[in-house]
Amino acid sequence: MATDIRQQVGTDKVDVTTDQSVIDRITAPLSDARDSSRIGTIVALIASGAIILFSIGIVARQRIKEIGILKAVGASNWHVIGQFGVETAGISIVAALIGALATFPLAQKVADGLLSSPSTGGNGGRGQALLAGATRTGGLLGSVNIAVSPEVFLYALAIAIGLAIVATVVPAWYVGRVRPAEVLRHE
């Protein structure tokens, strides 16, 4: 039965909401909730990474001609990176943070569903808990905190910073390769 649920959670099937599955959730072991937290983190990571690459792609594509113009009038690669790298890195950091913060409550919800805890407190309370790293009580199986652990938060922050660095290095490499003649060619 636990295997069933693991499969359900793992393959992200949310269409099973029969009485039986609700009972399953009530009896689900805590380790499943931890799994879902890990899944949440991974999803957050992938989502943030995708958003970062996407925003770099958009900025680079929209601005490729501008990069060419800047280089043509004598901007060094570093100057261009300073202009656009800061832009993409800024977008990336925000995206990564939003991605991480948005996904942790999701993980929390999944955990709530698993534990079938009666709704206690709104999202605001959870947000506070997240910041404070405090524990929340309630639910049939007692205190469970998914997104709240400071380690997880720091871990996510480290990932966000890592992604931001990638988001700076990738455009830098890209800018260095732009040949003005190529990108300023009409048609």
Partner: peptide
Amino acid sequence: GGREVSYRRRKVGFVFQQFNLIP
């Protein structure tokens, strides 16, 4: 590198068909 950048700055001024100003 730097000498190429400096050349583009100081030695030549480019005027393009599509103007290519920074919007």
